Simulated scan of single mutants.
Amino acid sequence: MTLPIIGPLQDFFASLPFPARLLAAVGLFTLLKPLYRLVRVLTDCYVLGGIPLATFGPSKNDPSKASWAVVTGATDGIGKEFALQLAKKGFNIVLASRTQSKLDAVESEISSSSSAQVKTVAINFLHATDADYKRLEAEISQLKLAVLVNNVGLSHDKPVLFSEGDVQEMEAIAEINVRATLRVTRLALPLLQQNKRSLILHLGSFAGSIPTPMLSTYAGTKAFLIGFNRALSYEVASKGVTSLLLNTYFVSTAMSKIRRSSWSVPTPKQYVAQTLAKLGRPGSCYEEDRRGREMTVWPQHALTEWAVREFVGLGRASGMSLKSQKVIRAKAIKREERLAKGQ
Rank of each mutant, 00 (worst) to 15 (best):
T2P: 04
T2N: 09
F13D: 09
F13Y: 12
S15H: 05
L28V: 11
L35P: 06
D44T: 06
D44R: 02
G50D: 05
L53V: 02
G57N: 05
K60P: 02
N61C: 03
N61I: 02
D62S: 13
S64N: 13
A69M: 08
V71D: 01
T72S: 15
G77C: 03
I78G: 00
K80T: 01
A83G: 03
A87L: 02
K89D: 14
N92C: 05
K102A: 08
D104W: 04
E109Y: 01
I110V: 14
S112R: 14
S115P: 00
A128K: 07
A128W: 08
E137A: 15
I140Q: 05
L154K: 14
D157I: 09
Q168H: 12
E169P: 03
M170L: 12
A172G: 08
I176A: 02
N177L: 01
R183G: 02
L187G: 01
P190S: 10
S205F: 08
G208F: 04
M214W: 10
T217M: 15
A219M: 09
T221Q: 11
F224H: 10
F224M: 07
R230Q: 15
R230K: 13
Y234F: 14
T242S: 12
T253I: 06
T253M: 06
K257I: 02
I258D: 01
I258E: 00
I258K: 09
S261A: 15
S264P: 01
V265Q: 00
Q270T: 11
Y271E: 04
T275A: 07
L276I: 07
A277C: 07
A277I: 02
K278T: 11
P282Y: 00
R290G: 07
T296V: 12
H301V: 05
E305P: 00
E305M: 13
G319N: 11
M320D: 15
M320I: 13
A332V: 06
I333K: 13
G342R: 10
